[in-house]
Simulated assay, not measured.
Amino acid sequence: MAVHSGFPGDELTDEELDVAYNVRRKAGPELFDRHMERYRAESGKAVAGLPGTPGVVYDEASGERLDVWGTGDGPRPVFLFVHGGYWMALSRHESAFMARMLHEQGIATVVPDYTLAPRATLEEIVRQVRAAVAWVHRHGRDHGLDPDRIVVGGSSAGGHLTGMTMVGGWQAELGLPADAVKAAMPVSGLFDLRPITRVYVNRTVGLDLDRAAALSPLLLPAERRCPAVVAVAEHDGAGFLEQTRRFGDHWGGGAPLVVPGRDHFDVVLDWTDPGTAMSRALLDLIRSV
């Protein structure tokens, strides 16, 4: 029998929590593989011939790299996209599918890698993503980026990591102003990690309840709440739908953007088309800062 600790959803059995958060199982292996192939194919198509600077080391401590895509004349606003994969899969190479659409709208894209679990702790992964923001702020102008117009977004685990750039208390240590992240768009994110301590992912990320709480954007102070669009797919996992609703309420942005007809994996692929609700929301957000 599970020991309950009081977080929302903790009354569920371990099997029920797995159903709520195991979106790969929900999709099934065939559909999941098709989605991953689309990530790779759409990213390759998006960056083919696009101006930019791939493979830049942004963090000397880890040696991790990022790609800059879609630069043009003068510094451009930048969308920094953090990939998902439950902190233990995927890379920047499958995660640039929005770069051409944004380039055509006068916006650059930055896609960082981060060291995957279990080689890195979740605390270290958070540090690396924040270091990527710091790199854009310090060095972006040299690469055609506007360091005063950084918008961060991410999907799934990348939505969690986006949330960890939205909260306060970390910027000064990296020499950043409190408003370095001007706006954010987490998609199908995890904002309270305490349920993760009881699902299969924790065999890899190894969280206890105290560490999970300390890494939960929903539970952390945010003196400054930057403009944000909090989005989720209509056919997402129940845990992601509930967490998105709760984070939207917490952040004060109103009801989340629920994208009809999409699931946990294909919702972000709407960013390849400027006419979708996802793209319109992102473009409006970037243009507002």
Rank of each mutant, 00 (worst) to 15 (best):
N202P: 11
H160M: 10
V151M: 12
L218D: 07
N202W: 13
N202E: 11
G189D: 02
A228C: 08
R24M: 13
G70C: 11
Q171R: 15
S188F: 00
L269R: 07
G261T: 03
R92M: 09
P274W: 10
L257R: 04
V126K: 05
W251E: 13
W135T: 14
E124P: 01
T197C: 14
F240R: 08
C226M: 11
E64Y: 05
T204L: 13
Q105I: 02
L218P: 02
V167H: 08
L269N: 04
A46V: 06
D270W: 01
A212T: 09
R92K: 15
V187E: 03
H143L: 15
M98L: 13
L193T: 10
A89L: 14
P29S: 01
E64D: 12
V126I: 13
G84W: 13
M278P: 02
T109M: 12
P75Y: 07
R225M: 05
G158R: 08
R198H: 15
V129Y: 05
V167Q: 13
R149A: 14
A214E: 14
A172G: 09
C226D: 00
V232N: 02
L50H: 09
T197V: 14
R65Q: 14
L145Q: 11
G175P: 07
G72K: 11
G275M: 06
A233Y: 02
L31C: 00
L285M: 03
R262D: 04
E234V: 07
I125F: 04
S43G: 09
V151Q: 09
F79R: 01
T53V: 10
W87N: 02
E123W: 03
D10I: 05
P77C: 13
L12W: 12
P177T: 09
D14V: 11
D263N: 14
P29W: 03
A157H: 13
R262L: 05
N22W: 00
A157K: 10
M166G: 11
L17W: 01
G140I: 08
H264V: 07
V267F: 01
V181D: 08
A48F: 11
G84F: 11
M166L: 15
Y39I: 01
D210S: 12
E16M: 00
G252D: 09
L207M: 10
V201I: 15
I125T: 14
L12V: 00
M88F: 05
V258W: 04
A228N: 03
R76G: 06
A255Y: 02
W170K: 14
V56M: 13
R100D: 10
G254W: 09
K45Y: 04
G169R: 11
H264K: 11
R245I: 02
R138Q: 14
V82S: 09
Y21D: 04
E104F: 05
G106N: 09
Q105F: 03
L90K: 06
G72T: 04
R92F: 02
K26C: 00
Y39W: 12
H143F: 15
G84E: 08
L145N: 11
N22C: 00
H250G: 07
M166S: 14
R194P: 06
G253V: 15
S91Q: 12
D192R: 03
V267R: 03
A117D: 05
G63A: 12
V19C: 00
